[in-house]
Simulated assay, not measured.
Amino acid sequence: MRIIFMGTPDFAVASLEALLDAGEEVVAVVTVADKPAGRGQKLQESAIKKYALSKNIPVLQPVRLKDADFLKELKSFKADLQVVVAFRMLPEVVWNMPPKGTINLHASLLPQYRGAAPINHAVINGEKESGVTTFKLQHAIDTGNILFRERVAIADHDTAGDLHDKLMYTGAKLLVKTVQAIKANMFEEISQEVDAENSVLKEAPKIFKDDCKILWNKSVDDVYNQIRGLSPYPTAFTDFQGKILKIFTCTREKITVDRHPGEFVSDGKQYLKFATKDGYIAVGEIQLEGKKKMKIDEFLRGIRL
């Protein structure tokens, strides 16, 4: 079965690697165009492009997915199936091209957490489990018929980065299972509509800078989950002595507080804690604006509070 793979970040690399290790025939990879990044604004290749080139797989990098030349080239590979992992929304002319259609691997238990940031939002909302879903693409984003799902537990201390890695490897295995099931015609499609009608759906929209600012008047649990859910990227932050302080890790103390939300206490050596509505957040790994990321004891040695 001839497969075209579409993806961009590291999350997608694990899936492509798993397909190749399983002996599947990936005839081409579609990814984003190279983008300037860093101080030198040098063109950076996507993670999936680097990996595909290392395996001598042809790479397509369209700027517009409806471009006639791109569509002609895509069609020339005569793919039976297209696989999408962390890419972008496809027009119907693309997802409807191969005879077996296009499948997507999504980092949530659909229909929950449809959208661009399912991993972050699951942790921010304090979920105890998440998972991965493979489904057939159709017009509305993340709404196609489900093929397979796999659950993954979220530990109380897991960050979005930890959950990302769990889902990345679980998803890669599930994708191989899905492709092999399609090849053998041993699968059934399950509509998302029944679940969607009978439950309150939680969305996973794109995260913006305003979503990352910590509101210390919230509960200690909400702030703790926000910090975990935005770590390591895009990272929760607060204003601290006139600068932006990013917080990557923390612990929580659910106790009666005698300070206003956002006020901090510290021994100047080992701990720095911020008051919330009903407890304290003790920061662990942080980064002050203009400085490198560091542990709290190292940070406190070099700053006057």
Rank of each mutant, 00 (worst) to 15 (best):
Y233S: 15
I281A: 10
V84C: 09
F148E: 03
L174A: 11
A275V: 08
I4E: 11
E24A: 08
I119P: 08
R114W: 03
A33V: 15
A117G: 05
G284P: 04
D156M: 12
L43V: 03
L305E: 01
K277M: 06
T251A: 10
V32H: 15
N145W: 06
A52W: 11
A181G: 13
E73H: 05
N120G: 09
F274M: 07
E127L: 14
I207C: 02
K291W: 15
N145C: 01
T134P: 12
V84D: 10
V179Y: 05
V283C: 04
R114V: 01
P261D: 06
A22M: 10
S191Q: 06
M1S: 07
R114K: 11
E24C: 08
L71G: 11
R304K: 15
L201N: 02
Q41I: 08
M6S: 13
I296D: 01
V94Y: 01
K173P: 06
D142F: 00
A196I: 03
I190H: 09
L167W: 04
G229T: 01
P99I: 05
F299E: 10
S266E: 00
R252P: 08
A86Y: 05
T159I: 07
A275M: 07
A107W: 11
Y271M: 05
A122T: 05
G131W: 02
V194D: 12
V220M: 02
F299V: 06
L60D: 12
E129R: 15
L245W: 03
G290C: 11
A122F: 02
K173D: 13
D158A: 03
V123P: 07
F87P: 12
E203W: 09
L16V: 09
P9A: 04
V94K: 03
A12I: 04
G171D: 07
E150L: 02
K295M: 15
T8C: 13
E189D: 07
I124W: 10
H121W: 15
L71E: 11
T134S: 12
Q226A: 13
R151W: 09
